[in-house]
Design a protein around this nucleic acid. Structure first.
Lengths: 145, 145
DNA sequence: TGGGCATATATGGGCGTCAATGGGATTGCC
DNA sequence: GGCAATCCCATTGACGCCCATATATGCCCA
C-alpha cells in the first residue's frame, strides 16, 4: 500500500437541502485508486460514528466471524452488527452521498458532517463529537494501560 | 545518517495573503537529501505545535497500532489521532506550504510561523509560544526529575 | 580585507482549474 | 398523482501552477 492510498486527515462538509454531502476529494481519490465502486457503511463498534470502506472490509469481518463458534453469543452479536447494521451506499456523479436517517440517529449528525480518515477506511462524525473525542484521545493517550 | 541530514536550528517566516509560508531552505535541503516528497503532519502529542516528517513516521505509528487488538479502545484512539488528526502536505514549486485552519487552531499561529528543527523531524510553532517554551526548557533543563 | 557582482531565498500576485454547493428537471416508486 | 431519489447543469470560492521582484547570501577578485 502506497502512502497516498490511505484515508488521512479530516474535513467537515455541509448537508444540503436534499440531504446530500460531498465526500472530500482526498477520500474520493483514494477510493478511485483502490477501484472501489460500492461503499459499505456500518455503525462503528467503539465510537458514535459511521465507518465506510470498500466491500473488502465486509469480507474481513465475515472471515473473523467464521473463526468463532457459529452458535456462540459472540458470533451472533458480531453478525448482527456487521450484517444487520451495515448497508451499501454509492456516490452520485458529483461525489456526494445521501445521509439516511439511521446515520443521523446513530451519530447525532444534523446539518454538517465531519469525515475522518482512519487509514483503511473513513468515518462520518457529528463535528462537535469528533472534536471532543479527539481531544479526549489526546489526553488519555499516555495513560498506563 | 550524516550530520547534515538532520533538522537543526529554527527560523521564522511570514504567512502571505494566500496563507502560504516558505519552508526554510535548510530544511528543504534535508528533505531533498532524504528523498522526501510527501510530508506527514500531525498535532504534536506534547507541545502546541505541528510536527512534520516524511511518511516513515506514519508507518512507525501504524506498526505500533498494529500490535494492539484492532477492536480495542486503545487502538481506535490512537488511529483517531494518527489518521484522523494527521495529514499529507506537499510543498509548491517555490517550497512553500499552505497553513490550514486546524494548524492555526492548534498552535495559535496567525501571521508568522517558527520552524524548529528536531533532528529527524521539524515543527511549526507560533513564534512567541516557541520562545517561551525554549526559555522554559533552558531553565528546567538540569532540574532533578 | 573589503567591495561588488551573481545567485538563491523569501515573498507577492495573476490566472486557470477543480472542488463544494445549490437548484431545476426528470425518473422511478408507492 | 405525489414523494423522493437521481441526473444534469450553474455558481462561487479555494487551491495549484506559473512568473515577477526584492532582499539577503555567498562568492570572486582586486
Amino acid at each position: 500500500m502506497g502512502v497516498a492510498d490511505r484515508f488521512l486527515s479530516n474535513a467537515t462538509n455541509k448537508i444540503d437541502a436534499k440531504g446530500r454531502v460531498s465526500v472530500p476529494s482526498v477520500f474520493r481519490s483514494v477510493l478511485a485508486r483502490n477501484g472501489t465502486q460500492e461503499l459499505y457503511a456500518y455503525q462503528d463498534f467503539i465510537f458514535p460514528a459511521i465507518s465506510m470502506a470498500g466491500a473488502e472490509i465486509l469480507e474481513r469481518f465475515e472471515r473473523q466471524i467464521a473463526t468463532l463458534d457459529p452458535f456462540s453469543e459472540e458470533a451472533n452479536r458480531m453478525s448482527l452488527l456487521v450484517h444487520g447494521g451495515g448497508i451499501f451506499m454509492k456516490l452520485d456523479a458529483e461525489g456526494r452521498l445521501q445521509i439516511p436517517d439511521f446515520v443521523r440517529d446513530f451519530t447525532g449528525i444534523a446539518d454538517r458532517v465531519t469525515f475522518a480518515g482512519r487509514g483503511d477506511h473513513f468515518q462520518l462524525w457529528e463535528p462537535a463529537a469528533f472534536e471532543e473525542m479527539q481531544a479526549r484521545a489526546r489526553r488519555e493517550r499516555m495513560r498506563p494501560a
